[in-house]
Nucleic acid binder design. Structure first.
Lengths: 220, 220
DNA sequence: TGTACATCAGTGAACGCGCGTTCACTGATGTAC
DNA sequence: TGTACATCAGTGAACGCGCGTTCACTGATGTAC
């Protein structure tokens, strides 16, 4: 029988304990290693050998699962986009029960992801992984954006038709603002700037002003 | 006599040509080397020895000018903030002759800097240089933000007093939006996302909507 | 149920390489007199 | 103006180290019969 995903070491992470000749779950362990190491020292701050060491295997073992370090980081990014998409989808919940509340939840879910999954967020947006290297990665990234876009589509319908902007543009505005706040203030790393208010409030205020500018009043 | 800054190699960059025992301008040459290498391979993509090689000196030479690689990158970031501040200050020009036009120029200058000085921008915002490592760096970073902040102060005065937001918050909104657009779409590197319109237009549209939300009409 | 065999996943030793850093040194520059 | 000397900036050789990568190998697992 094979090990079920994640049930080694009690699932708690950390360098591997004693085990047999076969690791049984090395691919997942390497991904976890990459996440730990990215969280510690940034997406460029670790080596393929570091990841192997963290997982408790010889430096040659990772080659059974990834061509090189870049492929490992790209895999982390892809998994990150999948989780991100799931989190955004759940928060948005198709705009139910009320559009504005759902929109607010969506923004908070974005910041929340950046804050609590900084390693994934780094791999996705700051590791310099080209989206072109892997079609699956591109698809995962586009699925995440699609959630923002469909939310934007529902929002613009509330705008009086004569001044209605393209939904795509609104989605890009929301994405940019949120990403800007997340990367400047939203994470726990050393490069973060100090802020006189929580990032969530900064974003909420920005979105209220922006929506008012579109002609959407928060009342409905 | 010493070499004047920048007049070696015709000022064109590139590995050094023949020279005497003393380089004469090594510190500046190392900074230029760092910029070239950051532009090529990202802020984490080069070594101290690479910079020395690029400048045409032995691997030990840089130690006369920088304690280590981090100090070199921090120096690049500091210089970047100085240039950035100068560019923003010039574009804003104290809101003359007309606030809205000046505000538009300011945003464009920001994106322009990110686009044409991607290496500086990287060192400033993405190299993981802690602002705390160097008081000069922090001061330079704050000077840049001060330009945005003083522009925001002038803008909020146009808002009817009963709904006037804190200038600091407006400055943070502008900064976040602009930084978000710049990092997602504004640079020429491989990680950039495709965009159906120029980043400048995306930003301008966002700012118009945002200002309308504040109650400021573009007309004046 | 047992056994032979194929496949798979990880080993560990080996290699060449470039890095960071140090060191005593040396060539060039500036300055006191 | 000349000269001795101090200071400075870069040299080049050396070191230990860890990395990336390869290789023949071996232990474990799964499966055909």
């Amino acid at each position: 029988m094979r090990w079920t995903k994640g049930d080694r070491d009690g699932g708690s992470g950390g360098p591997a304990g004693p085990r047999g000749y076969h690791h049984g779950n090395l691919k997942e362990a390497l991904v976890r290693a990459a996440l730990e190491l990215i969280a510690e020292k940034g997406p460029a701050g670790f080596t393929f050998a570091d990841a192997a060491r963290w997982a408790g295997v010889s430096p040659a073992a990772p080659y059974r699962h990834f061509r090189d370090r870049d492929e490992l980081v790209a895999d982390v990014a892809r998994r990150g986009f999948d989780l991100f998409t799931a989190a955004l989808t759940k928060a948005w919940d198709d705009g139910k029960p009320e559009l504005m509340a759902a929109f607010d939840r969506l923004g908070r879910a974005y910041l929340d992801f950046a804050k609590h999954q900084p390693a994934y967020y780094s791999a996705m947006f700051e590791a310099g992984v080209g989206l072109d290297t892997d079609p699956q990665l591109r698809a995962a990234s586009e699925a995440a954006f699609a959630v923002l876009r469909s939310a934007a589509e529902r929002m613009v319908v509330l705008v009086p038709p004569q001044g209605r902007p393209p939904a795509l543009m609104v989605a890009l505005h929301v994405w940019s603002m949120t990403h800007g706040i997340a990367s400047l203030f939203g994470r726990g790393d050393a490069a973060r700037r100090a802020l006189p208010m929580p990032p969530e409030e900064l974003l909420e205020a920005a979105m209220l002003i922006y929506l008012r500018g579109l002609g959407i009043s928060p009342g409905r």
